[in-house]
Simulated scan of single mutants.
Amino acid sequence: MENHKKPKLFLVDDDEFFLKSLETMFLNEGDFEIETYATGELCLKNLYKKPDVVILDYHLDGIDKNAMNGLDVLDKIKISNVEIPVIFLSSQDKIEVAVSCLHHKAFDYVVKSETAFVRLKIIISVILKFQKIEKRLDWYREKR
């Protein structure tokens, strides 16, 4: 019944330094399989790898001015698989932006700050516990 694979995180941000920092923090602090993407388009092309959680930046046009923004990427992720939890991690601290992301079915919204990583760890922990409960319930239903 139990599957002990490492949870897979997709980190999507066009800021190369920030993306590498985030990857390093997760690798040092948790038992995760990490994949990083500088554009939403690259993330979308790799959804077949079935991430457990996607952490997504709101603005993704730092490398390519014509790149999809975070909301468009979120919408396409949800079309592909509504079950994939997406957490926005962005420098946008406007409440309207956060509310818009939640209306588009983001799991949560975190503003980039000195406490962002701690918040992300807590949110991911909740998501992974919920996913584990869901898998156990599915297993139990199959056995009945």
Rank of each mutant, 00 (worst) to 15 (best):
residue 1 M to G: 13
residue 2 E to Y: 11
residue 4 H to E: 14
residue 6 K to Q: 09
residue 8 K to I: 03
residue 9 L to Q: 05
residue 10 F to M: 04
residue 13 D to S: 08
residue 16 E to M: 04
residue 20 K to T: 13
residue 20 K to E: 13
residue 22 L to T: 12
residue 29 E to N: 14
residue 35 E to N: 10
residue 38 A to M: 15
residue 39 T to R: 03
residue 39 T to L: 02
residue 44 L to S: 03
residue 44 L to K: 05
residue 46 N to T: 04
residue 47 L to I: 02
residue 47 L to V: 02
residue 47 L to M: 04
residue 49 K to P: 04
residue 52 D to S: 12
residue 54 V to C: 04
residue 59 H to D: 12
residue 59 H to Y: 14
residue 61 D to I: 05
residue 63 I to V: 11
residue 65 K to F: 08
residue 67 A to H: 10
residue 68 M to I: 15
residue 69 N to R: 09
residue 71 L to A: 00
residue 75 D to Y: 08
residue 76 K to N: 06
residue 79 I to M: 05
residue 81 N to Y: 07
residue 88 F to S: 05
residue 93 D to L: 02
residue 94 K to R: 15
residue 97 V to L: 05
residue 99 V to T: 14
residue 100 S to A: 12
residue 100 S to N: 12
residue 101 C to Y: 03
residue 105 K to T: 05
residue 110 V to C: 02
residue 112 K to M: 07
residue 118 V to C: 11
residue 119 R to F: 11
residue 121 K to V: 10
residue 121 K to R: 14
residue 125 S to T: 15
residue 127 I to D: 05
residue 128 L to Q: 06
residue 129 K to P: 03
residue 129 K to C: 08
residue 129 K to S: 12
residue 130 F to R: 10
residue 130 F to P: 00
residue 132 K to E: 08
residue 133 I to Q: 11
residue 139 W to A: 15
residue 140 Y to S: 14
residue 141 R to C: 06
residue 143 K to F: 09
residue 144 R to S: 09
